[in-house]
């Protein structure tokens, strides 16, 4: 889950030193290139490049695997469906494309502080002021989304354990209602915490 939770891995590699804006732009270009690459051999070459980038970044292979791990079953399903419906070469290219894009996005997360990402996003969203939107709020929304993943995951685990203790683990209502209430309560407190830290004043 580290990729989703903004697990920045400190380092001094060229990728760490590169600005957040440059990395996000490079990510967009790389993902476009992945879409345009049609053959399994070309995508194999792209995979080698991604592996080299991870090696250069020095974030460690475990951190790299943590980025791709959450989509492993989806990748297997995608491969199977594509293999059956469109043949093996298409299945290989589609699956590789998806996995490489996730790995690259994860690499950006691992080598960029969220604060730098937020600052970059705020700069990019500056024109939104002209239509009455606050770029700070928009970038804060992104940051809170990232931060909320482990919190909601913890709440869901607590609710699931409570369900098991009461012997109602298969009840959707027994899971959804307390989780929703906990999440709303968390959102209320978070809103107050933001006010105490000067947001919205």
């Amino acid at each position: 889950m580290s990729g989703l939770t903004g697990a920045y891995v400190p380092g001094r590699s060229p990728l760490h030193r590169l600005g957040a804006g440059a990395k996000l732009l490079a990510l967009a270009l790389a993902c476009t290139a992945l879409v345009l690459l049609g053959s399994p051999i070309a995508l194999g070459g792209a995979a080698v490049v991604v592996v080299l980038l991870y090696a250069v970044s020095g974030v460690g292979w475990a951190a790299g695997w943590a980025q791709v791990r959450p989509v492993r079953w989806f990748a297997v399903a995608l491969f199977a469906v594509q293999a059956l419906s469109a043949g093996l070469p298409v299945a290989v290219t589609s699956t590789l494309r998806m996995v490489l894009a996730v790995a690259l996005a994860g690499l950006v997360t691992l080598t960029t502080r969220t604060a730098a990402m937020m600052a970059c996003l705020e700069r990019c969203l500056a024109p939104a002021r002209f239509v009455g939107l606050d770029p700070f709020r928009l970038s804060l929304m992104l940051s809170l989304t990232v931060r909320s993943v482990p919190v909601v995951s913890r709440l869901a685990t607590q609710v699931r354990e409570a369900q098991r203790a009461r012997g109602v683990e298969w009840s959707v209502r027994a899971f959804a209602v307390p989780l929703l209430i906990s999440v709303l309560r968390h959102a209320d407190t978070l809103g107050e915490a933001l006010r105490t830290r000067g947001v919205d004043d």
Binding site: S143, V146, R147, A193, D201
Partner: peptide, 20 residues
């Protein structure tokens, strides 16, 4: 006043905003 008065809540998870 909120600039002069800091507030610490019961649940620290509810006041941590950034990932690191």
């Amino acid at each position: 006043i909120r600039r002069d008065v800091g507030f610490v809540f019961t649940d620290p998870d509810a006041q941590i905003v950034m990932p690191t």
